[in-house]
Write a protein that binds this DNA or RNA. Sequence first.
DNA 1: GGGTTGATGTTC
DNA 2: AACATCAACCCG
Length: 207
Amino acid sequence: MSWLKRDFFERDVLEVARDLVGVELVWNGCSGIIIETEAYAVEHDPACHTASRPSAREFVKSKPPGTAYVYFNYGMYWLFNLLVKGGPRDGLILIRALEPKRGIDVMQRRRKRDKLHELCSGPGKLAVALGIEGAHHGTIMAGRGRPPGCGLRIPSDSKHEVVTDIRVGISQAVDFPWRFLSRHSPHLSVKHGKVKAPDVKAPRRPE
DNA sequence: GGGTTGATGTTC
DNA sequence: AACATCAACCCG
């Protein structure tokens, strides 16, 4: 049982996203096994923040691999990502679901839910459960500078059948098969990725 | 079950 | 205006 080091995040973003399934995310007294991730690539991926946000490009440029990229979405939820950098493809990996392990009572209180499969079965949910907020943007999660309470650990008994799927909840590059999940886990977020149907209520383009 | 909707605020 | 979400609510 050892902490992931910085070089884990110095590889191709898809490889890292797949390898994170089965890894324990440890966060200030709470933890869970990562069972679902999504990869976003810095280059040639319209769904990645770097495609539209200068601040995200600056983050990638200035931070070391293994740094937490935390942002606020839909006016309500913090989403937790990890920076991959220094391999063939740089990117950000969204942590989408955990199997709760440690600090379950604390997570139940924060989530106001008792059932284990409702604690961390989604990226917004797991941030609430772990107590992740904007102040944690930039937390170093591997290598030198990592706070003692936070990190990524390889469990001794990691047995996961990793399945690939398309990414969830986006409207750009919807068909990239860059979602990775542990098959049959009861702690996943949504069941299957689906290509969004055209929105009939979308405003028509003026003549 | 599945589909729909409102809550909410940051970024560009 | 769009947005890497969630839970409550409807209907059946």
